[in-house]
Design a protein around this nucleic acid. Structure first.
Length: 511
RNA sequence: GCAGGUGUAGCUCAGUUGGUUAGAGCGCCGGUCUGUGGAACCGGAGGUCGGUGGUUCGAGCCCACCCACCUGUACCA
């Protein structure tokens, strides 16, 4: 006889089940973000969770497993489909498909789960929620500036105080110009450019020394593992490091964006100043900085030359929002969460589908990560939701069950969450059940009470408080703390009294 | 992927130079208390010691391979 197959009850890594308090916190956060986006004039759009793989910008070589990073599978007709890994690529598909019917600029927002086939970690999941807003068809950097302001407003709306976050802005054109100035232009150097950009992106993680190692020979991590560097010489590294530290040839902040020639290598600085991409990028950054300052956002949104963002589809300004306070895990160790929102200009994404160029810019809030960060910080109210009133079953005759159900119906008709105990256990277990459910009260009606036309109402919260001062069990039982009899006709009013004393704890984000 | 670390009950962990039936605390279920969530006392359930193979008279402990998880790092459109 074959052994019975018993599957192990388990969840794939990087995925999570979500329950009561977390769900209501998520709902509350989504609602707050939505309100800000609506206020800015964006309209909702929802797209499905998976798309044709090529529509997402993935190309499938002849292999069973398409590009790592996405979850893919084949349809009946053998076409490849992929779970969306962000909400931007599907938007580009939608805009391209309905281009002529949409108002331009087209301003839309959407929330949903996205999927990445990557190694999970703290604040990193394989299914997580993003909340995007995008402006498609607006070439001017005003659209970028607006997005940055909205990012700041949104973070404050979900409970991140001003000063506890920063929105950083950079421009891919500036980075491109720097690459060309240090001689890394052209297709031949694409690989090294990538390595340099990745090194720059690590600035807030490893600091100036770490980036210097990655630009040069390479860097060893704590475990002794070695990461190969970009192999730049000292002059090349110096220009980039000066740019990052703001100390030398390059200077960029909210008050202005400027270059000081003479701080570093004069020849390189001159090459940089005469570079077209650099000049264009700098001009755009200056304009963004001016717009932000005029609107009073200069302290919340900063120009920061270390921001790189995604390496492929961004073509101009890029932004990234970070929380500036330290987050600790359960063991008290600091956790690096990464950015909680990010975005940028992607003028080429829609053009993939249509010949013509369609300028677009947008950003995405990592709802799951932001929620995890706020939870780790204790900014989420962790109180369990107040449960339903539980009607205990003292007697299992059908007639009495009907009585209990009638009581439940009456409470529900009056807008009070209520249920009859549906298990098979005795009274003690029923009390435990009510306790575990977070019930504010239970209703007890045995034959004695029934005969008297009464019900017993027990206030569980008050009862627990009183019980703490009773040590002897016999006394505890005799006292029946916070329990009282009411006429059947007064049941609803009595329960209302109990609930009023127990104002439901808020479930959203704490102030 | 790479480097390092850790795997014993639901959770946190003990387990002697390899030696009878693998333990504790907490949690869970029940009893004391025949109708009351707490506390106390008493009792109970719960383990293929991550898996497979090997060494040995004998393996939770030693060896090999595999798996999972943790930390760092890489990648992250």
């Amino acid at each position: 006889m074959a052994k019975e197959f018993k599957p192990k009850a388990r969840l794939p890594r990087g995925l999570a089940d979500r329950t009561g308090a977390e769900l209501s916190a998520t709902r509350s956060m989504l609602e707050k973000i939505r309100a800000v986006y609506e206020l800015y004039g964006f309209e909702p759009l929802e797209t499905p969770a998976f798309e044709y793989t090529d529509a997402l910008g993935k190309f499938l070589p002849d292999q069973d497993r398409p590009n790592a990073g996405v979850f893919s599978f084949q349809d009946d007709d053998e076409q490849w489909l992929s779970l969306r890994y962000d909400l931007t690529a599907p938007l580009a598909r939608y805009v391209a498909e309905h281009h002529d019917a949409l108002p331009r600029p087209y301003r839309s927002y959407r929330a949903g789960y996205v999927y990445r086939n990557e190694k999970p970690g703290p604040g990193r999941f394989r299914q997580f929620m993003q909340f995007d807003a995008d402006t498609v068809g607006a070439p001017s950097v005003s659209a970028d500036a607006e997005i940055c302001m909205m990012a700041a407003d949104t973070l404050e709306a979900v409970g991140v105080p001003r000063g506890s976050y920063v929105v950083k802005v950079n421009n891919r054109k500036v980075l491109d110009g720097v690459m060309e100035a240090i001689g890394l232009g052209g297709d031949d150097n694409a690989g090294r450019r990538l390595t340099v950009l990745r090194a720059v992106d690590k600035f807030d993680k490893f600091g100036l020394e770490g980036v210097a190692l990655l630009l040069g020979p390479g860097r060893k991590d704590e475990s002794g593992d070695f990461t190969k560097g970009a192999g730049l010489d000292a002059r090349q590294s110096a220009l980039i490091l000066d740019m990052l530290s703001g100390a030398g040839a390059f200077r960029a902040d909210a008050e202005g964006v400027s270059i000081e020639i003479g701080g570093g290598d004069i020849a390189l600085a001159a090459a940089l100043v005469s570079n077209a991409a650099f000049a264009e990028g700098m001009a755009e950054l200056r304009e963004i900085a001016a717009l932000l300052a005029a609107a009073g956002y200069q302290d919340r949104v900063k120009i920061d030359p270390s921001v790189v963002r995604g390496l492929e589809y961004y073509t101009g300004p890029v932004y990234e929002a970070e929380l500036t306070f330290e987050i600790k895990d359960e063991d008290g160790r600091p956790v690096r969460f990464g950015s909680v929102a990010g975005g940028g200009r992607y003028d080429g994404l829609v053009a993939r589908f249509r010949g013509e160029k369609v300028p677009a810019t947008g950003f995405s809030i990592g709802v799951s990560r932001l929620l995890a960060a706020l939870a780790a910080l204790g900014k989420l109210d962790a109180d369990a939701q107040l449960g339903p009133v539980v009607v205990l079953v003292m007697d299992k005759e059908p007639a009495r069950i009907a009585d209990y159900m009638a009581m439940v119906s009456q409470l529900r008709a009056n807008g009070i969450r209520a249920e009859m105990y549906l298990g098979g256990a005795g009274m003690k277990a029923q009390m435990k059940y009510a306790d575990r459910r977070g019930a504010p009260a239970v209703i007890i009606q045995g034959s004695n009470e029934k005969a008297a036309g009464e019900v017993q109402v027990k206030d569980l919260v008050e009862g627990a408080r009183i019980a703490a001062s009773i040590a002897d069990n016999a006394e505890y039982r005799a006292a029946r703390p916070a329990q009282f009899a009411v006429k059947e006709s007064e049941l609803v009013a009595a329960i209302r009294d109990v609930l009023e004393r127990r104002a439901a704890p808020s479930l959203g984000l704490a102030d």
